[in-house]
């Protein structure tokens, strides 16, 4: 099929975004679960705070109060199964499945089946047939499995490019949001810092971005907030770094550029890519880290708007 309908391109792009969102969120929930186990004896208030901050990283859900267990279960339920929560894993997978149904002719049977199966697991949870803490592991595996199946079975045509654009855009945006909200508190290092808890939280940032092991291969056991920032921003080989994502976006847009004309989206991505490549030292030297992340996240939002104008509303 050489023709790519604008509506199909939009659906596959959003399918990529929703799948990536679900995958990110599953990973963050898993990290929060592990952190709760790790530090609830040492610093229960930190565990409570970590769960509460989900609202900042993924805006839009009601704040939850209570002790560690209450907030953990409420958070899990809200972010995994919450139907009113437009960003929950269940909502994201429901939307991804609706997008997949709309463009089933572009997908392999295996990809559609895996998306459908994952949604069925979640649907059982939404209907109260499975507990969220039990379901989380299953769903996480299923979501990761979808990514693998996509990589192994889909043809690398234009549909693939739009899917990858969705995945990468979402990934970069979520990593920036994660860094924007999780890292600044860790950069301020008061004298009475609790080193084990501090390190646990830094590891959480890396794990939330699926990058702890990759980070260790590059930096070894040394763990500082600036190194984490540098790695998640500039490492060109780590699949969850901002630089990696932007480089992929650049490649994707190169594939679909119209008749060699530089589009708005390509120009915006190119500018971002140059900034990450040539202004890394300036960026690393800045102290308003949250503003840097926010600025880049706004750039990503503008790229999304350009893509919509260029390709989805022909």
């Amino acid at each position: 099929m050489s023709v790519m309908l604008s509506r199909a391109a939009e659906n596959i792009y959003w399918m990529g975004r929703y799948l990536e969102r679900a995958s990110n969120l599953c990973r963050m929930l898993q990290v929060a679960e592990q952190l709760t186990v790790e530090i609830r004896g040492l610093a229960p208030e930190t565990a409570v705070e970590f769960w509460s901050e989900f609202t900042n990283v993924y805006r839009g859900s009601p704040a939850v109060t209570g002790d560690v267990d209450e907030i953990r279960m409420a958070g899990l339920h809200n972010w995994l199964l919450g139907q009113g929560n437009t960003l929950s894993v269940a909502t994201s997978m429901h939307n991804a499945r609706e997008n997949a149904r709309a463009i089933r002719e572009y997908l392999t049977r295996e990809v559609f089946e895996q998306i459908n199966e994952c949604w069925l697991h979640l649907d059982a949870g939404v209907r109260g047939e499975a507990s969220p803490d039990v379901l989380l592991g299953q769903v996480q595996q299923a979501v990761f499995g979808i990514g693998g199946t996509i990589g192994r079975t889909l043809i690398r045509d234009e549909a693939w490019v739009f899917l990858d654009l969705g995945v990468m855009l979402e990934r970069v945006y979520r990593v920036l949001m994660l860094l924007r909200h999780r890292l600044p508190p860790l950069m301020a290092t008061p004298n009475d810092i609790d080193i084990p808890v501090h390190h646990a939280l830094l590891r959480c940032v890396l794990r939330s971005a699926g990058s702890l092991e990759n980070y260790r291969r590059v930096h070894g056991a040394g763990l500082t907030p600036r190194q984490v920032w540098s790695f998640l921003f500039f490492d060109s080989q780590s699949p969850h770094s901002v630089a990696f994502g932007v480089s992929n976006l650049e490649g994707d847009l190169g594939e679909i550029e119209r008749g060699g004309v530089l589009t708005d989206a390509a120009r915006q991505v190119g500018r971002l890519s140059s900034q990450l490549r040539y202004e890394s030292q300036d960026l690393l030297g800045r102290h308003d880290f949250a503003a840097v992340c926010q600025g880049l996240a706004s750039d990503i939002e503008r790229i999304h708007e350009s893509l919509t104008r260029l390709y989805f509303t022909v």
Binding site: M1, V3, M4, L5, S6, R7, A8, A9, I103, R104, E105, E158, F162, I256, R258, Y311, V314
Partner: peptide
């Protein structure tokens, strides 16, 4: 899917000068 052709909805199509076209990413 089985025929390898696009699945379109009415909103994907446009008629100009009695010619029917699909709205695609390449125009």
């Amino acid at each position: 899917r089985e025929m390898g052709v696009p699945l379109v909805e009415g909103r994907d199509l446009i008629v100009e000068n009695d010619q029917v076209s699909m709205r695609t990413t390449r125009g």
